[in-house]
Amino acid sequence: MATLNVNGEDRPAPAGPVVLVLASGRGERFLASGGQGPKLQALLAGKPVLDHTLDAVRASGLQFHVEDAGHPGMGDSIAAAVRATRDAVGWLVLPGDLPLVRVGTLLRVAQALADGAEVVVPVYQGQQGHPVAFAAACGDALAALAGAQGAAPVVQAHAVRRLEVDDQGTVIDIDTVDALAQAEQLLQARRAPG
């Protein structure tokens, strides 16, 4: 039986893709905007931003891997995470600073991949968001990424399925203090009765 190393633990390879939670960025824009400390540890509704993201991933039931080693760029982080989960049937690349992404969106993106898409990009009101999903056929290209550009070259080299979603959480990342305040307001609105 194939195994998958997830966060240092060998597990049976899942039937579905693995969510790669990218948590190794330096958060320079957040600090430059007046943030105090790492953006993934900034408090959102009394809990670190990364914890909100991980709560959604855990609730989805999908396997996941947190890539939190200090890599110089997003491409390096993606490559390391793919190499650590090489036997996966595919990957959902999710930056750790998307605390409002919905569980249903993660599942819809994973299902689109299972339905045969090579690359799946969620789109909210015309804006491309995350997680971006990749089939196993993209693995070698993803594992070879480096630098700040992320997986854009892999997306451009494959057939892309644009998945329309009603989830603002796919495009709200915590890059600045203002973005954190906006996320706080949106989270309160979600939790409001009615």
Score class of each variant (00 low, 15 high):
Ala2Trp: 06
Asp10Phe: 04
Pro12Met: 00
Val18Met: 02
Val19Phe: 00
Leu22Ala: 08
Ala23Arg: 07
Arg26His: 14
Glu28Gln: 12
Gly34His: 08
Gly35Asn: 10
Pro38Phe: 03
Leu40Tyr: 10
Leu43Gln: 14
Lys47Ile: 05
Pro48Trp: 04
Leu54Gln: 02
Gly61Arg: 12
Gly61Thr: 14
Gln63Phe: 15
Asp68Gly: 10
Asp68Ala: 15
Met74His: 13
Met74Val: 14
Met74Lys: 13
Ile78Asn: 03
Ala80Leu: 05
Ala81Val: 07
Ala81Tyr: 01
Arg83Ile: 05
Thr85Asn: 07
Leu94Tyr: 12
Gly96Ser: 07
Gly96Cys: 04
Val103Gly: 06
Gly104Val: 11
Gly104Asp: 15
Gly104Pro: 11
Leu106Ser: 03
Val109Lys: 02
Ala110Asp: 13
Ala114Thr: 13
Ala114His: 15
Glu118Arg: 14
Pro122Ile: 07
Gln125Arg: 15
Gln127Gly: 01
Gln128Met: 13
Gln128His: 13
Gly129Ala: 04
Gly129Asn: 07
His130Gly: 00
His130Glu: 12
Pro131Cys: 04
Asp140Thr: 06
Asp140Met: 00
Leu142Gln: 01
Ala144Thr: 00
Gly147Glu: 04
Ala148Phe: 10
Ala152Lys: 15
Ala159Lys: 12
Arg161Ser: 11
Val165His: 02
Val165Gly: 05
Val165Tyr: 04
Asp166Phe: 01
Asp167Ser: 01
Gly169Ile: 05
Ile172Tyr: 07
Asp173Leu: 12
Asp173Glu: 12
Ile174Glu: 03
Val177Met: 04
Ala179Met: 10
Leu180Gly: 06
Leu187Arg: 05
Gln188Ala: 15
Gln188Trp: 04
Gln188Leu: 11
Arg190Gly: 13
Arg191Glu: 14
Ala192Gln: 12
Pro193Gly: 02
